[in-house]
Design a binder for these strands. Structure first.
Lengths: 210, 210
DNA sequence: TCATAAAACGACATGTGTGTCACTTTTAAA
DNA sequence: TTTAAAAGTGACACACATGTCGTTTTATGA
């Protein structure tokens, strides 16, 4: 006698289900998605899926956790990939621009819908807070590095700048999602962001007096 | 014989129902609100309410229309109330700041939830587009006035500036709603906005050379 | 005060999503 | 090959929101 011991391929099964869920979320929207839909998309049965997740909300949670990890990794790499902080920041905005252009096929609208739907739940408080903190802290850290290196001479506290641009990023994503490409003309905006950011953090030109 | 002719107090009845709906929306969130809830809050009966609205979505529509009208009126007044355009803009941001501080008791979270929930519906496309357009156009008009009067000397197209600040406003509202007061420190941000806006539009100091 | 039409009522039929649970299949160790 | 414990199945019972519709109430004008 011996029971079958499940290895961690259980995790890969969870993964599969989350991927199926994401496809449905993207196709018909987070709010219009029911367990039934995910069950069908995943190819499993009702009971099978419930073995891993008991609501679309849980799937969304798992999804966000993964996305956030990936983002954190990406941001981490940016700083080390460019000689100056300013170039790293510019690259960051270029990434944002790319994401904006692909927004209609992507994950962003799902995130927006889902967070707007779930933010009142206490069980989401921690997720929200972590997201917000990370969004700010990342940029703040980059700015601080720039200041330390003598690259920047900020006109207002970098913390304020970081918070401001964190809000901007959210705002433009919402706009692009809900109002469509016609509404935002994303590329133009990104340039405006960079220019005003450049001013606020006081990027020194070469040969600028210390 | 003579039928009872309804005057336009029908409109006031609609108003009453919309107000009841808003109370419920604020209390438990747009998505968690059912017709049953609104029926109870309004004091009418199921059939009575259905005589005016057949879904919470319709009520929300009516609500938005009214809010937008009020906003448009308010913005209109701003320009004429201040001697310089810059002061009018500063006053606009002061209003925004006030709204941010009261966000938790207010309508903004409901708007966010509802638009995130409904934006995919074709029947909302017009509402969304109008909202977005008005949000931008209003600021753009103010900026243009400032340019015409020689108050401003913008560094990038005012259209871009208007779009950018329109996104910012949305972003900060979402942040304040979902992340709470702890998340955004609204007052600080507003000052940052104003400073960077001031730079972008090139507000001339007194005695500045033309 | 009476007649009539609109306003309001509320029980009911319907549709749909949810979570469970007794049962079948698969898997791997013995 | 046997065995037992997981994985997986899908019908079912349940809850709940929706929209309707026959009935009752209200208000007006004759």
């Amino acid at each position: 006698m011996s029971p079958k011991v499940t290895e961690e391929h259980r995790e890969s099964k969870r993964q599969e289900i989350v991927e199926a869920a994401l496809r449905v979320f993207i196709r018909q929207g987070y709010l219009a998605t029911t367990m039934k839909d995910v069950v069908e998309e995943s190819g499993l049965s009702r009971g099978g899926v419930y073995l891993y997740f008991s609501s679309t909300e849980e799937m969304f949670r798992a999804m966000v956790e993964e996305i956030d990890q990936a983002n954190a990794r990406q941001d981490e790499e940016l700083l080390s990939a460019y000689p100056t902080v300013w170039e790293a920041i510019a690259a960051m905005f270029a990434l944002l621009r790319k994401e904006l252009l692909r927004i209609r096929e992507g994950v962003v609208p799902v995130l927006i819908e889902a967070f707007a739907a779930e933010w009142r739940k206490d069980s989401f408080r921690d997720l929200l807070e972590r997201r917000y903190a990370e969004g700010c802290v990342q940029l703040e850290r980059m700015l601080q590095t720039g200041v330390d290196r003598g690259e920047f001479r900020p006109r207002i506290p970098i913390r304020t700048i970081a918070k401001m641009f964190s809000s901007i990023q959210g705002g433009i994503m919402v706009d692009t999602t809900q109002f469509g490409a016609a509404g935002t003309e994303a590329p133009e905006q990104i340039e405006g962001y960079l220019l005003s950011l450049r001013y606020l953090i006081g990027v020194r030109e070469e040969g600028d007096p210390a």
